[in-house]
Design a protein around this nucleic acid. Structure first.
Lengths: 359, 359
DNA sequence: TTGAAAGCGGTACCAG
DNA sequence: CTGGTACCGCTTTCAA
């Protein structure tokens, strides 16, 4: 165990390229060439500089480097224009981070396009001017049209990352978002464990059967329900975007058709319709939904929802930016470090409501 | 909905103090004086500069500012020298962040002192040289000795933040860590919901009854068990630091004395002893523990543990650093933003094992 | 009360 | 292949 007891503070000052230059007996320019692997330096000189770096324990000051470099990153977030609170919050998060990112020489902005219209997404991608845009984070379904547009965009020198829903069929794919299969598994574990009875029916709701993320959630859900809670019967997925239909028809119908319904799992990221259809009568149901938003938070608080599976919007945006940056700079990134966590929220561990004011 | 459809990228360049100076008809130095609220500027000039700032939408480049300022922050983390995996991982996290923090002109280092010896903690605090140290993040029990030492340290001009366990009795207290009462509540909700039977006994284990965090967890736990799961009987807390006693005596004894034990909640952050005492025979118990570490992860994977309540070490360290920095600079920070989340891990949402290599 | 100028740690262009 | 030097955006003496 190091540092036991007594204080022994090291006061070592961080060496600069000046120190390296002096130590290696070369000029600043040469040190810079070596450090940035620029050509035109004799290998002996390269070696001497590297030795100096090692000996002095040099660490590049990226802030100073960026300042001098004047490199500006311009990224676009392409979000669906669906009426989803979660997506609206993503956009808010993006513009909130935009302010502080300016200090890191990166400009981000949001564009909204029709989610299920692959052609429109493709057009938006194709319209990105490569001379003004360095990267794009896109939320899109996995269709051939999208895949081709993504490929074209990459060829035009724009970095592309898949946001929230994966695009594994695209070559050189980078994904930022939760593992949706695991998210579905988590939902199932909670569902099976929280249900008061140990048999009965489970209703699964979705907003779109086209989206890959929803399919993956459903798959993971089924997997765990089958293996760990085989006594339950998971009903076929019901697709509704429509508030009224859900509240007035789907849920009531289901409850009358199957009086032994124990729970509802909604893979959608919009919860308003679901919440409208819930009431004190459904309090005994285990209701699991996705994404923490003001609406879903309230539903959890009032016991309408049992649990929420979520992903941190701040992390998603930051991670996407880091990924685009490292793609543009062609430097590696730590995959595991950029994995977005699957968060579970119960009423008890709900974080304090975040106010809009920043540090 | 903004930005619908077409791409309209703004290319506005960030204004600098040069632009402000020109726009306001003053020199760089004067702009700097105004921006940093330094004295010796006529109020008319101040106003003119402020107007220019507004009009041009100036945002300070903090990286450049810090570069010029040459300000270095030196912080110490004072951790207990107990044999806890979690604390060891905290120390690792600290030294891992230390590397990248150097680029942000902040140096951090760890010191270990006996956790339950308030005198030793006080001595460590008193020994911090204010001319070399700007702030300290300390894990300490809430005793009068500690409280006084914290007060003295603050008076000597060193910023102090309470880490992991709160010190609310200290004036001007800053705490970085989870809300332990809520964490206990979360554990109880999981315990009551996951238990197969809806009555029986619950065993609560702790490593130290002196620590405030453990007390708070127990309180929160009892609160929710009582209110939401009154059919269960929560047994008095058993305190053990000792592996063998726990494995050979405590657990076996409890299981024979009370055959209707349904679950175990360990408020400790060290899980090795608990894990040793578990076996296939205890698989039907709901076991809830704290902190995600390689050990507890394995226990979750092998179904020995049911759920884990955790806090992100990376966040804790980063947050502590931000807090110390803003305390030193006497600038405000967003309290809600620094709240550490109470994470819930099940086998299903366990994040990928993080490798040690960095970006 | 204000301005000029020399850095901070790097980068990049232009000579040699 | 290598060195000199003018910045990047901001801070901080030192004079005026």
């Amino acid at each position: 165990m190091p540092n036991r007891g007594k204080v022994k503070l090291v006061e070592r000052v961080k060496p600069t390229i000046n120190d390296i230059a002096r130590h290696a007996g070369v000029s600043l320019a040469t040190v810079d060439r070596v450090l940035n692997e620029r050509p035109g330096v004799r290998s002996v000189t390269v070696r001497r500089v590297h030795e100096a770096v090692k000996e002095l324990g040099y660490i590049r000051d990226t802030a100073a480097a960026n300042l001098a470099r004047q490199r500006i990153y311009r990224f676009v977030f392409l979000l669906p224009d669906t009426d989803e609170e979660f997506i609206d919050e993503m956009q808010q998060e993006i513009s909130s981070q935009a302010k502080s990112l300016i200090n890191e020489r990166t400009h981000i902005e949001t564009l909204r396009v029709s989610y299920l219209d692959s052609t429109e997404i493709a057009a938006a991608l194709d319209n990105l001017p490569p001379e003004k845009i360095d990267g794009v984070a896109v939320v899109a379904p996995e269709t051939p049209t999208v895949r081709d547009a993504v490929a074209r965009t990459r060829e035009r020198g724009i970095a592309v990352v898949a946001l929230l829903t994966d695009l594994p069929s695209s070559p050189r794919n980078h994904f930022v978002g939760i593992d949706n299969n695991a998210a579905g598994q988590t939902a199932a574990k909670l569902m099976g464990s929280f249900a008061a009875e140990n048999s009965g029916k489970i209703l699964v709701l979705t907003s779109s059967r086209l989206a890959r993320d929803h399919l993956e959630r459903r798959q993971g859900f089924d997997q765990v329900m089958e293996q760990q809670f085989p006594e339950f019967e998971v009903l076929p997925t019901v697709e509704t975007n429509d508030y009224k239909t859900l509240a007035d028809k789907v849920l009531p119908d289901a409850l009358t058709s199957w009086p032994d319904i124990r729970g509802v799992y909604s893979t959608a990221s919009s919860n308003k319709g679901l919440i409208k259809s819930l009431s004190t009568e459904t309090m005994n149901l285990v209701v699991i939904a996705h994404e923490l938003t003001p609406t879903s938070r309230a539903a959890l608080q009032s016991n309408l929802f049992t649990a929420l599976i979520s992903q941190d919007k701040g992390h998603v945006v930051r991670s996407a930016v880091r990924l685009m940056r490292s793609t543009v700079d062609a430097v590696p990134y730590n995959v595991t470090q950029e994995r977005i966590r699957i968060e579970i929220f119960l009423k008890e561990n709900l974080p304090i409501e975040v106010t809009t004011d920043q540090l």
